[in-house]
Simulated assay, not measured.
Amino acid sequence: MRCQPKLYGLVYNWLKITQPCLLCDEPSDTPLALCSGCETELPWLGEHCLICALPLSSLGTQAALTCGECLQRPPAFDRVEAPWRYAFPLDALITRFKHQAKWPLGRLLGELLAEHLRNAFDEGLPRPDYLLPVPLARQRLRQRGFNQAAMLARWLGQGLDLPRNEDCLQRIQDTPAQQQLNAAARHRNLRQAFALSPGTVVQGLHLALIDDVLTTGATAAALAGLLKSAGAARVDIYCLARTPKPGER
């Protein structure tokens, strides 16, 4: 007499189940919860500034260009790595992850960012010593319940086998939200907003700041300047998306 029922067929069927695409709800034909068709239709960054990753629409066949802003006023950070432009449907996915706590969408985007970074490392991008998520002010963290940059840093750390430090940076001023401010106001808004935690040592380190979207670069520049003034050798920015200039598609 057999103690266990014959479940071979059920186990076989379970192993064959494919996860649905989080965008179109059709069965995914990739290891991720995103089908190849939807992945192709994401707003990939394309030609961009090699420092700040600003999308550039008139590069032609020239391969290596730096935008005028970075030429005139080089930023404190060394390089921005982002797979996409901040455009539909990616903007909706980030908004749902960030403001509606749709964590599976964030995890999917984090896995795709990790794949992008693996390719960049293979092509010569130096691997950082630590991943540092952009910190949230305490009040905003309580309101939202989580820091989306910290979650991205955890997923990237796991996928890329890189250490992270979530306690290195502090946001000591709860400044107004950046979304409604222009570039000049964003920079004024962030003066003295950040600090290093007591006892933090970054001398000679290559650090990567993690955030969801880079818009004007004010937050990234403020944090990179803080880290560089404390002795960091290099500061890169890893984010999901880069916004184009106002008025550009």
Rank of each mutant, 00 (worst) to 15 (best):
A101T: 05
D91I: 00
R85G: 02
D129Q: 10
L125F: 05
W84F: 14
A114R: 04
L141M: 13
E123D: 15
L108K: 06
L131V: 04
N147G: 06
L125H: 06
P89V: 02
R79Q: 11
F88K: 08
G124R: 11
K98S: 04
Q139S: 15
L109I: 06
R85F: 04
W103P: 00
Y86C: 01
R96H: 03
P135N: 06
N119E: 14
P104S: 00
F97P: 03
D78T: 12
A149H: 08
W84L: 00
W84G: 00
Q143D: 11
I94L: 13
Q139W: 13
G124K: 13
E81Y: 08
I94T: 08
A120D: 12
L93W: 14
T95A: 15
T95K: 12
D91A: 05
Q139F: 05
Q143H: 14
F146M: 11
L117N: 04
R107H: 08
P104K: 03
F146K: 12
F97G: 00
F146I: 10
L108R: 04
P128L: 00
W103F: 12
L136H: 09
A120R: 15
A137F: 10
P135F: 02
L90P: 09
A149V: 10
L112K: 14
R85M: 10
W103V: 12
N147F: 10
P133I: 03
R79G: 03
R118Q: 15
